[in-house]
Amino acid sequence: MDAHLTLTADRFPLVRDIGWNQTEELYTHPDRTLDYDVFLYVASGSMQVVEEGVPFIIHAKQYLFLKKGLHHWGRHETAAGTQWYWVHFNMADSGNTLYKEKAPLQELALYYPDHYLYRLILPKQGAAFPGMENRLNALMKGLEEGRSHQMTRTSLSVYELFLDLHQASVEERKSTSAEEISEQIIAFLSSHSCEPFSASHLAAALNLNYSYLSATFKRVTGQSIIETHTRLRLQHAVALMRSSSLNISDISDRLGYQNPFYFSRVFKKIYGESPSAYLRQFYRSH
Rank of each mutant, 00 (worst) to 15 (best):
T154P: 00
R265C: 00
E144N: 08
S285W: 06
D35K: 09
M140L: 15
H59Q: 15
L40T: 05
Y41M: 06
H71T: 02
A239T: 10
T82D: 01
Y116H: 12
N247I: 10
T8N: 12
R219P: 02
L156H: 10
R119S: 05
V266N: 12
L208V: 06
R16F: 09
D35F: 08
P30M: 08
F65M: 12
V38L: 11
L232E: 07
R231Q: 14
W73I: 01
I181T: 11
V220R: 15
M151E: 08
Q22G: 00
R233W: 05
A239M: 09
I225D: 09
Q281H: 15
Q83S: 10
T230Y: 01
E273Q: 12
H115E: 05
I251A: 07
F217K: 06
N209C: 14
A109G: 05
M140S: 09
F89R: 00
E144I: 01
G81T: 07
V38Y: 00
L120T: 03
S177R: 14
L163M: 12
F65R: 13
M1I: 09
P123R: 02
V220E: 15
L122G: 03
G142W: 01
E52G: 01
S264W: 00
P30G: 02
S190F: 08
G256C: 08
Y271W: 05
A79G: 01
W20M: 02
L240E: 11
